[in-house]
Design a protein around this nucleic acid. Structure first.
Lengths: 240, 240
DNA sequence: CGTTAACTGTTAACGGTGTTAACTCTAAAC
DNA sequence: GTTTAGAGTTAACACCGTTAACAGTTAACG
C-alpha cells in the first residue's frame, strides 16, 4: 500500500476521498439536506468552486455518495454471508435479512438516502445508467443470487399457477433467467420475501411503526419467521 | 353557501385556499422541491413576504399541505367504504386497499410527500402535535376501525401466542384498546395486513418494483388475495 | 535545464432560495 | 370621522448551486 504518495493523481484521489468522507459526515448528522456543496467545501477548508474539479454538479456528488453507500452495504451483506460457515443456506438468508435491518437501524440517514422516495416520476424505462443505479443493481443481485441458491439447494413448495393468474405468471416467467431458471411460482415467493422484508425495514427505520409498536424488533422477528417458513426454511423459534 | 362575500375574514380564507391550491398545483407537476415559498407567491401574483401573513414559515405551509392531503385521502377512503352497500366487511377492506393503491398511483407526487421518508430522526416519543401528524392519525384510524369491525363481524383464526413470543404478545396486548379489544394474535394479523399493504404500495408507486415487474398490478392482486385469505376473507379469484 | 501545458485552487459574480424589518394603503371598528 | 388592525409592498440579509476569469503549482516534453 503506497498511500499518501506525492503523485498528483494520488493527491487527487486522496482529496476525492476526503470530499466523500466529509459528505458522509454531514449526511450522518443532518440528513440529506445538510450535505450541500458549500457545506462540504467548508468542511475541508476549500472554496465551493473547487469541488467542481471533482464533481460536475451537486447532484453528481450526491450520486457518488449514493453509489458508495450501496457498495458499502452490498459488501457488508456479502461478507456477512461468506463469514457463515454452515451449509444451511436458509440461515444465510436469515443473516442477510437481519444484516439489512441492522444496517438500516445503525445508519438511518444513509438508509433514508438510499431507500427513501426513489424516483417518484423519473424515467424508469430509459437507460438511466447512473453509478448509483448500477450499484443498486449489484445490491439487488445479492438477494437474487442467494435466493436462487436457496432454491437449488432445497426447492420449496410454491403456489400453483392457477392461483397467481396468467398475467402474473407470464411476467414472472420473463424474469426466470435472472433467477437462474427458477419456476415462476418460486420467483413469486422469493419476491414476496423481498417485498415484505423491504417494507418492514423501511417502516421501522422511518419510524412509521413506532405509533403502534414501541420496539419493532419482536415484530420483525415474527415476520421473518413467517416468511422464512413460507420458503420451507426452519427458523429459530421465538424465545418465551 | 355565501362564498365570495365582502367580509375581510372571508377574503382571507379565500386567498388561503388559493395559496394551498397553488401549492398543490406546483406539487403535482414538479414534486416537493418545486413547491417553494417564492414559487407559490409567483403563482398568484404576490410578493413572497405576503405569504407570511398566512403561514409563519415555508415548513408550516408544507405542513398544512400535508395535513390537507391526509384529510383528502382519508375522506376519499371513508367515502369509498360508505358507498359500499353490501354487508361483506371483507369486501370493504378490499376496497380500502385498492383505494389506497389507486390514490397513490393517481397522485404519485402527493403520495411521495405523505409517505416518502417520514421523520428519519425526528423526535418520535415527543408530543409532536403538528396538524400533519394529527391528520396522519385520523388516516391510520380508518384502517384500524375497519379491521376491528371485520374482526367483530367474522373473527378470523390467528396464530397461537407461543408462536409470536412473549415480548411481542405483551406489546400487542398493550395496543388492544386501540383495536376495540381484539386479542393480540388478531392484532398481529391485522398489523401484518397493513404492513404488507403499505410496503407493496410504496414500492410500486416509488418505482422500486419496475426493475423486476413491468406492471405490478397483477402482483398486487395476488398479494392482496394472499393477505386477505390470512384474515379468513374470500377474495375474488385471479382471472385467467 | 527551460519551456509549456495541464491541473488545482482562488476571487467575483449571477440568479435562486427562505426570511425579516420598515413602510404604505385600505377596510373594518368605535 | 377618527382610529386601528390587517394585507400588501419594497429593500435587504444570509444562504444556496453554479459559472467565468484568473493565479500558482506541478508534471511533461523538447
Amino acid at each position: 500500500m503506497d498511500l499518501g504518495g506525492t503523485g498528483r493523481d494520488r493527491r487527487r484521489a486522496a482529496t476525492l476521498a476526503e470530499i466523500k468522507a466529509a459528505a458522509r459526515r454531514l449526511l450522518v448528522d443532518g440528513g440529506v439536506a445538510a450535505v450541500g456543496l458549500r457545506a462540504v467545501a467548508r468542511e475541508l477548508g476549500l472554496t465551493p468552486p473547487a469541488l467542481y474539479r471533482y464533481f460536475p454538479s451537486h447532484e453528481a456528488l450526491i450520486g457518488a455518495l449514493i453509489a458508495d453507500l450501496y457498495d458499502e452495504l452490498t459488501s457488508a451483506l456479502m461478507q456477512l454471508q461468506t463469514t457463515d460457515e454452515s451449509p444451511d443456506l436458509g440461515e444465510r438468508l436469515y443473516l442477510l435479512a437481519n444484516g439489512l435491518r441492522n444496517w438500516g437501524l445503525a445508519h438511518p440517514a444513509e438508509f433514508a438516502l438510499l431507500f427513501g422516495t426513489a424516483v417518484p416520476m423519473a424515467d424508469a424505462a430509459d437507460h438511466n445508467e447512473t453509478p448509483g443505479h448500477q450499484a443498486a443493481m449489484r445490491f439487488g443481485n445479492v438477494f437474487k443470487e442467494l435466493v436462487a441458491q436457496v432454491w437449488h439447494w432445497k426447492p420449496f413448495p410454491y403456489p400453483p399457477d392457477e392461483l397467481l393468474g396468467a398475467e402474473l405468471i407470464a411476467q414472472l416467467t420473463a424474469e426466470s433467467e435472472h433467477f437462474q431458471g427458477m419456476p415462476p411460482g418460486a420467483i413469486y415467493l422469493s419476491l414476496t420475501y423481498w417485498t415484505r422484508l423491504y417494507g418492514l425495514i423501511c417502516m421501522e427505520v422511518f419510524g412509521q411503526l413506532h405509533w403502534v409498536l414501541p420496539d419493532a424488533g419482536a415484530y420483525f422477528e415474527a415476520q421473518l419467521r413467517e416468511i422464512g417458513e413460507a420458503l420451507g426454511l426452519d427458523c429459530p423459534p421465538a424465545e418465551q
